[in-house]
Write a protein that binds this DNA or RNA. Structure first.
Lengths: 230, 230, 230, 230
DNA sequence: CATGAATGAGTCTTCATTCAT
DNA sequence: AATGAATGAAGACTCATTCAT
């Protein structure tokens, strides 16, 4: 199975993610470390408090840093939010691209499994990131910038998956000529399943969600995905 | 085809949805009319301004009513928001229930088509309602209450669809014993497609979205749904 | 002697200008009353705390009103400040214009005395107004809007005085053809004297300042102004 | 003509007044050099950004120095501001004193011209200094300390001018016994003209301002100042 | 001496909620 | 029942000041 960054979460120099923020690392971390710290804290805060409940105070508190610091490294809350969204979108897209990347002698069956594994990996489906992901959808109608980021991701992602599915259709001699439609459907389904994971974790867990997606793929690509393969 | 409330939108006594709201409907409307007016205005405002851009002022202005009236009929902004969410969820669930309701001599093929028609009907996929729907996913501050609403809807909806799919599986002698999984997958897919309709209307329109869903159903229930049936 | 508005100060419904602001007049004053109240409070605050020491809090406290009210009636602090500057400039210009206004059979000697009386009247030279006046000069280099207001006032004022002085020059057969220069000099001198009144009230009082101005006028227009005439 | 410091501006070790301040003069300049650098930068910043737009950051950036250095040499922003004001007042007073200083066989006519030349010299009327001068008039928070500085200047200056004018009155046998009043009037007028130079440079330039002042002096001391003498 | 990342009090502004009319 | 002026708590952002390096 393809490996992809299991970074799990942005590193935090010393701050704990647990409740007591505990003022830490008083001095001069490299800017990039601080930025990552703040982006991670933003994700946590959105997961915990919602987007509207996320304030500069909740973020910096979560990071164990002072109030002013976010404006020092990002120029505004808006920019920090955007950077957070971009971090997740970027990680997602590059992760998916890595899975789909051509490697010689590749087996499309394995690759299809890798793709589903990726989409339902712990890293991608962690609550922090899903919460951010969906938090921005509610606002994206009104925020052109969010829209742009998301559209970029979506178009890229759907196109990459469609290309991949076309290869599968060709290899499998599937009757259906609708790789595009299946790509759309698959993308929509994983979005919907993520939403369920976020909103109703008790109704559905990560592995069940993956099963559901696999069933779909098995029904359209029976030679490449077998039900219960995972 | 099954009929379901084509209410289209909550009635508004006199207020126009166009820009100049023009103080209207002066005195003493029945409370229920006022409530509907306000709920409708809330939907419009969320669609137009996002959830975070929606204030009591934007809502009452949209409704052509005074600021104080919202607090008179609902006790707080949060209650109005919740009522709005409930209105949409309730309409959705009762609409779906009506479609699935047993009526003698019913044809499951027709009913399956009706279901898809319903899920991608103009009324259900109107921007106002989708915007409200997804606006709440980022908000966990309100989530305890909100989740109850959504979970209620989701569980009910998935259960109803699963029961229906089980009848189809039985009638069609489909190999798959996974009506539940298909119901989950279908539900997730329509959520994801709605999201696309809301976020990227240029990439996907209502009829295309329905096609995608039909493809899925055709692949799992080939005897009950034919590709291109719509 | 010409009369001009001796309004002295903007009326305040109930608030005292003395220290204890004492929440007052809780409800619904006509907007114009509130605006005047706030403008007056702004003048007081600038006189007391300086422009940089003037915050929305000091202003509204001075007015005996709540913090939010200023943004309700003016849209921002900037606009309130501008309105305050305009109130003073407008009062000044219309007051001066009233003094210089042509009335038949007018005596230029009397009118010249009226002009000086006006420029050193209690109303015009009150500390509140002078403080505002000079507070804005420090910022006007950077604030085009302040500059515009001030320029408008200055050009108007100097032009009006120059026209008046030209009539005096003509009537007095004064050798000097430099009415413009005298108008500039006189205007500059009263600005400088106001500054002295504001900054060093112990060195110079209002009547002494007027004497100084009269001496100047007497030296250039000996037939129209006699030293010690006031 | 009397000479007075034509320092023009405080020397700056290496920093240019042009935009890219370019970190310069690295280590260990003599404290006095640093102080002058910072005072000069303060003047520039006030001229450019106004007093309210002047922050420790704009000052140190203008000086091409680090943020911390200002607090090292002055203890606080306020002290730096005061030092800047004092530098200007001190330069002014000592410059004026130098012009008026008794030197044997002195010609009062020449000296009077020197005085006006000084008051409207490029050095004294430069925008940087006038901006600082007038910037402080709106600030009463700092006023106790500030007033002391200004009063010192004013009293000294007016007294010196009055003494000088008394000698002129004596020499010229002028009827007027009001040397004090003329000194006040002249001082006020140059303050007012400076204000015009700062605020409305398009209406009045340096030489025109001097003309206006000369006209005044010519009208009160006709034997010592002739109109158009400059 | 010198630096500039970090801090947090203070400011403007927004907006849900109240309440006299 | 209805209004909207008024309130004030809460939020984003600024910036003088500190201090580890």
């Amino acid at each position: 199975m393809a490996t992809f960054q299991q970074s799990s979460d942005l590193p935090r120099t010393a701050a704990k993610r647990s409740r007591p923020p505990a003022r830490t690392s008083r001095r001069s971390e490299p800017p990039e470390v601080r930025r990552k710290q703040l982006i991670s804290a933003t994700m946590h805060s959105i997961a915990k408090n919602g987007l509207s409940g996320t304030t500069m105070a909740t973020i910096t508190q979560e990071a164990g840093l002072s109030l002013g610091i976010a404006n020092l490294h990002f120029k505004s809350k808006e920019k920090l939010l955007l950077a957070t969204l971009e971090a997740i979108a970027g990680e997602y897209n590059s992760g998916q691209a890595a899975v789909l990347a051509d490697r010689d002698h590749e087996n499309l069956v394995h690759k299809l499994n890798d793709l589903v594994d990726f989409h339902f990996s712990k890293n991608i489906t962690q609550k922090n990131k899903l919460a951010v992901w969906f938090a921005f959808f509610g606002e994206s109608k009104v925020r052109p910038t969010y829209q742009r980021i998301w559209s970029g991701h979506d178009i890229q992602s759907v196109a990459a998956i469609r290309d991949f599915f076309e290869r599968i259709v060709a290899e499998g001699n599937y009757q259906t000529a609708h790789a595009t439609s299946i790509a759309r459907g698959y993308t929509a389904m994983i979005d919907g399943l993520w939403l369920d994971l976020l909103i109703a974790p008790r109704e559905l867990n990560r592995l069940q969600a993956k099963q559901v997606a696999c069933h779909y793929l098995a029904s359209v690509f029976p030679n490449h995905m077998s039900i219960g393969s995972e």
